[in-house]
Lab assay of single mutants.
Amino acid sequence: LTVHVGNVTYHFDNPEQAEEWAKRMAKKYQGQIHVKDGQFRIE
């Protein structure tokens, strides 16, 4: 699973971990989480 934050990409084996990280990053950067094809993108 991949989480994109700006132009930085993080890889996770565990979906719960990826989702948790995406939520934390979205809160930190006050962005929206977009989920597409098993990838999380924070914008």
Rank of each mutant, 00 (worst) to 15 (best):
E16D: 10
H4Y: 08
N14T: 12
K27F: 04
G31H: 11
V3Y: 01
K36W: 12
P15S: 11
A18R: 02
G31Y: 06
Y29F: 10
K23C: 15
K36E: 14
D37L: 03
W21M: 05
N7A: 09
H34M: 13
E19A: 09
A18V: 04
A22L: 08
F40H: 07
M25N: 02
A22S: 02
F12K: 00
G31P: 02
D37M: 00
V5M: 09
V8G: 02
W21L: 03
V5C: 15
R41D: 11
N14E: 06
W21F: 15
G6W: 05
E20A: 12
E20I: 06
W21C: 15
V8S: 07
R41P: 09
E20P: 00
M25I: 10
A22I: 09
Q39Y: 07
Y29I: 09
Y29C: 15
F12S: 00
V35H: 04
H11L: 09
N7F: 08
V3S: 01
Y10F: 11
V8Q: 11
P15I: 12
K36T: 13
T9Y: 11
E20S: 08
R41M: 14
N7K: 11
K23W: 06
F40M: 14
E19V: 08
W21G: 00
D13N: 12
K28E: 10
F12G: 00
D37N: 07
R24T: 11
P15K: 13
M25K: 01
I33A: 03
A26N: 03
R24Q: 13
A18M: 06
H11C: 15
Y29L: 13
T2E: 11
D37S: 00
V8L: 12
G6T: 01
Y29D: 03
Y29R: 02
E16V: 12
V35F: 15
G38Y: 02
N7L: 08
T2S: 09
I42V: 11
V5A: 06
T9P: 03
R24M: 13
R24S: 10
T2M: 09
W21A: 05
E16S: 11
T2R: 09
K36V: 15
P15E: 10
R41Y: 15
D13V: 05
Y10C: 14
K23I: 12
R41G: 10
F12D: 00
E19D: 04
N7R: 10
V5T: 01
D37W: 00
A18N: 00
P15H: 12
H34S: 13
H4M: 13
A18C: 08
Q17Y: 09
Y10N: 01
G31T: 09
Q32F: 06
I42L: 02
L1C: 15
H34F: 13
V35S: 05
A26V: 05
V35R: 04
G38K: 02
L1K: 09
Y10G: 01
I42D: 08
K28P: 01
A26G: 03
G6Y: 04
E43A: 09
F12R: 00
Q30D: 11
E16Y: 11
R41V: 15
G6C: 15
A18W: 04
I33Y: 04
K23D: 06
E19K: 10
Q17N: 06
Y10V: 05
Q32S: 11
F12P: 00
N7S: 11
A18T: 01
E43C: 15
E19Y: 15
E43T: 11
K36A: 07
I33C: 14
I33R: 01
A26P: 01
K27I: 12
R41A: 10
H34I: 15
L1R: 12
E19M: 14
H4F: 08
N7Y: 09
L1S: 14
W21D: 00
H4A: 08
L1V: 14
Q17P: 01
K27V: 09
R24P: 00
R24D: 08
D13W: 06
Q39L: 01
K36L: 12
Y10P: 01
K23S: 06
F12L: 00
Q17L: 13
E19P: 03
T2W: 07
N7Q: 09
R41T: 15
R24V: 13
K36M: 12
H4D: 02
Q32R: 08
I42P: 07
Q30E: 11
H4W: 12
Q39K: 06
E19W: 15
E20N: 08
Q39S: 12
W21S: 01
Y10A: 02
A22M: 07
N7D: 09
V35N: 04
A26R: 04
D37I: 01
I33H: 03
E43W: 06
D13G: 05
L1T: 14
Q30V: 05
E16R: 10
Q32G: 04
G38F: 04
D13T: 11
F40N: 09
R24G: 06
R41E: 14
F40R: 08
A18Y: 06
A18L: 09
Q39P: 02
I33N: 02
V5G: 01
Q32P: 04
E43G: 07
A26C: 15
G31K: 05
A18G: 05
I42T: 06
V8N: 08
V5Y: 09
H4K: 12
H4G: 04
K27M: 09
T2Y: 10
H11A: 05
Y29H: 09
P15C: 12
I42R: 03
K28W: 08
Y29M: 08
V5W: 12
L1F: 15
K36S: 13
A22H: 02
E43Y: 08
Y29K: 02
G31W: 12
R24W: 09
R24I: 14
H34Q: 12
G6A: 05
F40P: 08
V3F: 03
N14Y: 09
D37A: 00
Y10T: 02
A18P: 00
I33P: 02
Q39W: 07
I33V: 10
T2P: 01
L1G: 13
F12V: 00
M25G: 00
A18S: 01
Y29N: 03
P15Q: 11
H11D: 03
V5R: 01
G31D: 04
Q17A: 14
I42N: 06
A26W: 04
D37V: 00
Q17R: 10
K23F: 06
E16Q: 12
K36F: 13
Y29S: 03
G38R: 02
Q39H: 14
I42W: 10
H34P: 03
H4S: 12
V3E: 00
Q17V: 11
K23Y: 07
K23L: 10
G6I: 04
R41W: 15
H11G: 02
W21R: 00
V5K: 01
T9W: 06
K36D: 11
A22Q: 02
G38I: 03
E16I: 11
A26I: 05
K27N: 07
D37Y: 00
K27T: 10
F40G: 07
G31S: 09
I42F: 04
G31A: 13
I33K: 01
A26D: 03
H4V: 14
A26E: 03
T9M: 10
R24E: 14
P15A: 13
G38S: 02
A22F: 05
V35C: 15
I42G: 07
H34A: 10
I42E: 07
N7I: 07
V8R: 13
L1M: 13
L1W: 15
E43N: 06
Q39E: 14
G38T: 01
E16P: 01
M25L: 10
V8H: 13
W21K: 00
G38M: 02
K28T: 04
E16C: 15
E20H: 06
N7T: 10
K36R: 08
H11T: 11
A22E: 02
V8W: 12
A22Y: 04
Q17G: 04
H34W: 05
Q32I: 14
F40A: 08
V35I: 13
Q30A: 10
E43K: 05
E20W: 11
N7G: 11
Q32H: 14
A22T: 02
E16N: 10
N14Q: 06
W21I: 02
M25E: 02
R41N: 14
N14K: 09
V3R: 01
V35D: 03
V35E: 04
I42S: 06
Q30F: 08
K27Y: 05
W21H: 03
V3D: 00
F40S: 08
K27G: 04
G38V: 02
Q30R: 11
V5I: 13
R24L: 14
P15R: 14
Q39G: 14
M25D: 00
R41S: 13
T2A: 09
P15W: 13
F12I: 00
T9R: 09
Q30S: 10
G31V: 13
V8I: 12
K27C: 15
V3L: 04
W21Q: 01
E20F: 06
K28M: 10
Y29Q: 03
R24A: 14
H4P: 00
K27L: 10
E20G: 03
K28Y: 12
M25T: 03
D37G: 03
I33Q: 02
H11Q: 09
K36I: 15
G6K: 04
A26Y: 04
V5S: 01
V5P: 00
G38Q: 03
T9G: 02
V3T: 00
V5E: 00
E43I: 14
N14M: 06
V35L: 09
N14G: 04
E20D: 12
Q32L: 08
D13Q: 08
